[in-house]
């Protein structure tokens, strides 16, 4: 039973990362590596707020999430919007974001060092019993927050005017502009939303297992696998993709061994890319309109 609980917790975290990435991806339409950097920075914002400034759990969390959203917006404003305006291709945007990611990750290493930092202080969290397995409070929080966020996000995207417009911008930004949607505002809103969401997961995972300068990239890779498994435009698909990936990994750990964890994730990725590239609920792939 323990592996199911662990798998659900990990899967919930992956699903949240995947959702945060999909928000940024849908509007930007390129593989944005700086999303991983924002994820990492969010963890270190938490470290600053909690360990160094000594803020309370909630105040520190709120401040870290806001700082991360601001960081995402600043990146969009200063780097990606000018590039979009010049009609830069997806490859150009990807390379720029990879370069920026490297700089941002190394800045963290320089400032804080490469060793693991604990966010939860020195107290060892007591475990609670769930279905005969052990889980910490923070692990339960991950699962609950995941469900709440997915429901809220689904409602926001499907039922609010903001969501309709965001989907319109994701679908065809040029047409949206023609019809009077202020596309740049939605790009900024999407980066704030995606970055803030990434920060929430980053803090939760940081509280659970601690942070290093590379947590962002690891999380993003798993998130992307979940996005591809679920289909980028399908919120329920992303949820399912994350949970199944988490379960598959922990089943693998239980049956084969921990060193195969990443191999399992990428095996899932390859399986989906070959057999069902549009994901569970995804629509058939189409070429992006030029």
């Amino acid at each position: 039973m323990q592996f199911v609980v662990n798998g659900l917790v990990t899967g919930a975290a992956y699903a949240l990362v995947a959702l945060s990435f999909s928000v940024v991806f849908r509007v930007g339409r390129f593989f944005n590596f700086t999303h991983a950097a924002v994820f990492t920075w969010a963890g270190y914002f938490g470290y600053l707020c909690w360990t160094i400034l000594g803020l309370s759990l909630w105040a520190g969390a709120l401040l870290s999430v806001c700082l991360s959203a601001v960081l995402g917006v600043l990146l969009e404003l200063s780097v990606y919007m000018p590039l979009h305006r010049r009609r830069a291709s997806g490859v150009v945007l990807l390379l720029v974001s990879l370069g920026l990611y490297t700089i941002m990750q190394n800045t963290i290493s320089m400032l804080f060092g490469d060793e693991i930092k604990r966010l939860s202080g020195n107290t060892v969290a007591e475990g609670l019993s769930v279905w005969g397995a052990r889980a910490t409070r923070i692990q339960l929080a991950i699962v609950i927050i995941c469900v709440v966020v997915f429901v809220a996000f689904g409602i926001l995207l499907r039922l609010s005017p903001f969501g309709t417009r965001l989907r319109a911008v994701a679908d065809d930004p040029d047409l949206a502009a023609i019809q009077g949607v202020q596309v740049h505002r939605f790009r900024l809103a999407a980066s704030a939303l995606g970055s803030g969401l990434a920060a929430v997961v980053s803090l939760l995972m940081g509280l659970d297992v601690g942070i290093t300068p590379t947590v962002g990239l690891n999380a993003l890779m798993m998130g992307v696998v979940a996005v591809i498994a679920g289909g980028v435009d399908s919120t329920p698909g992303i949820f399912l993709g994350g949970i199944l990936l988490g379960l598959a990994q922990h089943l693998g750990v239980w049956k084969i061994g921990t060193q195969w964890q990443d191999a399992i994730a990428f095996a899932v990725l390859i399986l989906f890319l070959v057999l069902r590239p549009q994901g569970f609920f995804g629509k058939p792939l189409r070429k992006a309109a030029v």
């Binding site: 005017p161 417009r165 989907r167 679908d171 065809d172 047409l175 949607v181 435009d233």
Partner: peptide, 17 residues
């Protein structure tokens, strides 16, 4: 061009923003 992912009603809502 129309927003392929949006419903007809949603398309009109965006058209009228």
């Amino acid at each position: 061009r129309v927003f392929a992912d949006l419903t007809v009603r949603e398309n009109l809502e965006v058209g009228g923003i």
